[in-house]
Write a protein that binds this DNA or RNA. Structure first.
Lengths: 256, 256
DNA sequence: GCGAGTCGTTCACTAACCGTTAACAACTTA
DNA sequence: TAAGTTGTTAACGGTTAGTGAACGACTCGC
């Protein structure tokens, strides 16, 4: 298999680093990018010129923004992920019956997850924390934890060793051992909770979507404001719905 | 402004050409890509190795597929387009009241448009022709024509000169002069129809979303099977709804 | 209104690298 | 078995990606 340790195309990797910088900041300027990546301004200039004609970036009032061509690539690629095609109708259905926000999440590179799809029941009285395309660490959300709980033990160990458990709110789990025992409980229960661990304004429940070997393909999470997400509604009604939704997706995926 | 005529980063452009080939074919193999681009296999190999570690491509049973990292870039970038944020709730609403499929389209590079968002009312009895992320020529669909009709005259002229009007069905407009007079009518009417011009299974109506200077920011199109999309329902009910939806989006956009 | 500080851009230059040709193992196919 | 595939390495050479220096345009504070 090809590996791009130092065999790879460096210019492509530089272009990627520039795109990544644009995504993680708010409309950065050329020099801001150059400084962030420790590159010369002319180098960044050339890359941006290229990326602009390709439609990968666009200028917007003085800064750079990810361009429409990548939108096209992205939504095209998403459609080719079977879990997306299968889960999307269920996510919409779930959101409408719960009258809350539901999102579909898949494990990404390393210790991150990608939020593939979000649907919010109208009227949307909430401003969503998990936005489509967002990349977040695994330990601070219900979906992330339920994915983590179903990963291989050594992968989890590597995650625990290499990444620091950043603190998002007062409730975020930042202790290694606490997280470890939680993960065991989550695996037993089959669901994970987010009790204002990533934002004070939210609580959530997530159920995993597993393949035939028990590896996590993704997770479905229901999110809502704390007053609504508590007591029986949270721990019985919501759990039941999200678990049956995830099981449903699992079954459809394992058919072929 | 930067232009990448031959000043640009060639390696980045090569990587893009490879990604583009993957998108326009069905899970192509390494040699298939190399042949299509007239590149040596080792060159393609190096690029694919790099793109794979970046998550831009992934292998799937012997071929290459666009990877999840680009999904992340894409849905992130889409969220940062104001027209998307503003129009999406209206598209969902429109689809639900019409019980049809509705899509949001924006002009892309050159004479193409990108399908940014699609929502289909459940139950979906139809298989959709315009899929999210698809890139299509402007002349063969309602949304494309309504965008074309509102573009600058010289841009349209350039389009007519440079691009051949490909024939998708027996109804596709392939005559330059016929298209020209149609465009004038579309501008006057404010809507464009697709009467089985891109597929025999579909008809559609589209209304443009214009900025304050009358330039097209995008279009909203309602699609449905011919039996349902005809007569009064098509030419009065549907037209009224799609136009008021597009106007609504225009107003929200021009506020700030 | 004058410098000092930005910003983006263009210009040569050169070490590094991208893409080449050639050769290879692992599979299919005839 | 041999002649096709396929993807993969290795070494080489001409191109190029990234450098530093220098430039206009613009925004500051004084």
């Amino acid at each position: 298999m090809p590996t791009a340790d130092d065999y790879g195309i460096k210019a492509t990797m530089t272009s990627h680093r520039i795109l990544d910088t644009i995504r993680s900041r708010d409309r950065p300027t050329l020099t801001e990018i150059a400084r962030a990546l420790d590159l010369s301004k002319p180098a960044v200039h050339k890359h941006l010129a290229t990326l602009e004609t390709l439609g990968y970036v666009m200028r917007r009032d003085g800064g750079y923004e990810i361009g429409l061509e990548l939108v096209s690539f992205g939504v095209y690629a998403r459609r080719r992920q079977r879990i997306y095609e299968v889960a999307r109708p269920r996510v919409v259905e779930l959101a409408n019956t719960m009258r809350e926000q539901v999102c579909l999440v898949v494990p990404g590179q390393g210790s991150e997850w990608n939020c593939l799809y979000v649907f919010t029941a109208v009227p949307a009285d909430v401003d969503t924390p998990d936005q489509e395309g967002e990349i977040r660490p695994l330990h601070a959300t219900a979906a992330g934890k339920v994915i983590l709980a179903n990963m291989d033990k050594d992968e989890v160990a590597e995650f625990l060793d290499h990444d620091s458990l950043s603190s998002e709110t007062a409730n975020t789990i930042t202790e290694r051992n606490e997280l470890k025992s939680k993960l065991q409980a989550i695996r037993d229960q089959g669901v994970a909770y987010d009790r204002q661990e990533q934002s004070d304004d939210y609580r959530g429940v997530a159920a995993p979507v597993l393949d035939d070997d028990g590896r996590p393909l993704g997770a479905i999470e229901v999110l809502g404001p704390p007053p609504r997400m508590s007591g029986k509604r949270l721990e019985e009604d919501t759990v039941g719905l999200v678990v049956s939704g995830a099981r449903d997706v699992e079954n459809k995926l394992s058919i072929d």
